[in-house]
Structure formats: C-alpha cells, structure tokens
C-alpha cells in the first residue's frame, strides 16, 4: 500500500484525545433530582431540547450504570448521606454536574437544613447556576463537561 493510501484511511491521534472524544459523547446520566430544578430538567429531557444531540439522553436509574451524576436540586442534610452513597456506587470514570443555585452553593437557603453546596459532600466537575437554570444553561453545562472530558488525562 502506498503512503498516500494509508494517510487517507488512517487517523493518527493521541490515546487520551481519542478516549476523551469517545467518553464525551456517551454520557449516561443518573438524575439525582430533588427539587424545583428537576421540573426544569423534565423539560430538558423531553423532545424540545433533546439532550440526545450530546449523547446524554440515556437516564440510567442505577448509579452503577451511569457516568454522569446530575445533582438537580437542593441537597439537605437529610439527603446528604444518600447522595454520598449514590456517588460512591458509581464506577470510574465519573463526572458530577451540579445544576441550580442550591446544588452549587445552597442558594438562598442559608439555614440549618440545607448543605451549603453539593461540593461539600462530593466533588463537583461543572457548576450550572440559576434558580432554576434555563434548559439552555443545562445544555451549556453538559457541553462544558464534554469539553472538560476531552481535555483531561484519561485513566484506563
């Protein structure tokens, strides 16, 4: 085979880049929906906003089968151990998106019952602010996560 033919049929790339590309388009999500934002998330997951474009349309209701944990809503102190347990059950590589002001920072619920941000319980990769965020913002959050996955070192 001549060299031209090989260059036409073979793509050379780095391992990290290739795996990152694959992983960024197969985000199976676990929706940890608790509050107001979950209602907005119903809109996101229906046909109008179509998360399938990002390879993130497949909600798995088992943490063991999912790659992306979406914290959609307020995390209270009562809920915190549950969230922790769900996150621990997920297999690596796992990514966490905190959707909404409450999940990001506790929002305006600064009181005895609410954890001041989901990142005080588990590490968070992408923060989507808003109370609740518009569907476009959640899509933007998913795209930001894809970007992050593509540019990070991939462990096998």
């Amino acid at each position: 085979m001549s060299e031209d033919k090989i260059l036409d049929n073979v793509i050379t790339t780095r391992m990290d880049k290739f795996i990152g590309w694959a992983r960024s388009y197969s985000l199976w999500q676990y929706v940890f929906g608790t509050a107001c934002c979950a209602m907005e998330f119903m809109s996101v997951s229906s046909s109008h906003y179509d998360t399938d474009r990002f390879g993130a349309a497949m909600p798995r209701y088992s943490p063991r089968q999912s790659d992306m944990l979406m914290i959609v809503g307020t995390i209270t102190h009562k809920q915190a151990p549950v969230l922790r347990r769900v996150w621990e059950q997920m297999a690596e590589p796992k990514y966490v998106v905190a959707v909404g002001a409450c999940a990001v920072s506790g929002g305006f619920y600064r009181n005895y019952a609410v954890v001041q941000g989901a990142d005080r319980v588990i590490p968070v990769d992408v923060y989507v602010p808003g109370c609740p965020p518009r569907p476009e913002m959640i899509l933007d959050g998913i795209m930001a996560l894809q970007e992050k996955i593509r540019n990070s070192k991939q462990y096998l």
């Binding site: 102190h77 009562k78 319980v121 590490p123």
Partner: peptide
C-alpha cells in the same frame, strides 16, 4: 429547629463535610 432559641444556622451534618477549596479527590 423552629423554637426561637434554636439558631438559624444550627447545622447538624450527617456526613463529614468536605472543604471544596482544599480537598481534591
């Protein structure tokens, strides 16, 4: 919690809370 002598910020965490600015896991 709704007693007037209970502080508004009287949190009683059930899990050990992280410090997101320091820990990295």
């Amino acid at each position: 919690p709704l007693r007037k002598d209970y502080p508004l910020m009287g949190e009683q965490p059930r899990v050990k809370l992280r410090n997101p600015e320091q820990e990295n896991d």
